[in-house]
Amino acid sequence: MSVFLSSPFMHNIFAGLAQGIIYSLVALSLVIIWQSTHVLNFAQGAMAMIATYIGMTEIDRGIGYWWCVIISVLVGMALGGVTERVLIRPLYGKPEINPIVVMVGFLGFLEALAAAIWTSTTRNITEPFSQIYFKSNGHLVFLSSFIIFQIVLAMGIMLSVAALFRFTKLGLQLRASALAPEVSRLLGVRVSRMLTIGWILSAGVGAIAAVIIASGNFGLFPTDMDGIFVASFIAAAVGGLESPLGAVAGGLIIGLAEQFILAYWSPDVAPLGGIIILVVALMIRPQGLFTKNTIRRV
């Protein structure tokens, strides 16, 4: 058994899943925003990056790792709420290109701002768990406490989000205002507040993903979430932007696919792997693999 766990194949499985679950997390956050306000938030990664910078640099002042994580998430949530109120609210009912352009501008702004304040050099955040692989009977098992932490934290967040949407009154209101805003408003749901809460939730989830990324080998730098955002968007689009479950599955698929292309084909073509998957998936089912109903805007 331990020989099997030590095989290169299992290494790729573990590495792919660990990376994929980050994509799942960011893809989930994209889907939450998409469902509440029908905006694809191009600045999602950059917002999380800024929140990580603000929170995690508190480590320099001697504040503990976990407090910094909490600060990052709270800053991320606040940023999400403010963004929805200030940048997105004026654009409801405008052509769908307008919010895209504004959020792309916000992405550029946040990255330039981060580089101006904290420089573009990579910062390493002291990781809370070791990255050294476990050993069993003298064989390396390609899991480390950091990978386990990463997977457990991401799973925990996803389950809590799912529980929030499924079992709480707030979750019901959120789903109702995404599905039928007018009816919800008539029934006393404060829809506009729900939209803001959707953004707050989503930005919080994104911030956690960015914290995990910054704590690992990747480090923290102003454009560190660009690649993650692109892969996560592909994950969300493959699953269908409407489906949280699809986003999570899509993330894992993309993570595994990238890892296997890297390992078994060529690192040169790895950047194209995600696009190829996206193109093929969209050719088969343009509305996403996990979306039940086809929605066609006329």
């Binding site: 998409w34 905006v39 694809l40 191009f42 769908e96 290109i97 895209i100 792309v104 660009d226 690649g227 692109v230 968007f233 592909i234 689009a237 932007l241 040169d268 073509v269 790895a270 950047p271 194209l272 995600g274 696009i275 996206l278 193109v279 969209l282 050719m283 343009p286 805007r297």
Partner: peptide, 22 residues
């Protein structure tokens, strides 16, 4: 041609992100 607004923008972004590493 089968995509609209946000999907299209995201897909073209993925393309330009892949070009530099290639």
């Amino acid at each position: 041609t089968r995509l609209r607004g946000p999907y299209l923008a995201g897909m073209t972004l993925a393309f330009s992100a892949a070009v530099t590493p290639l």
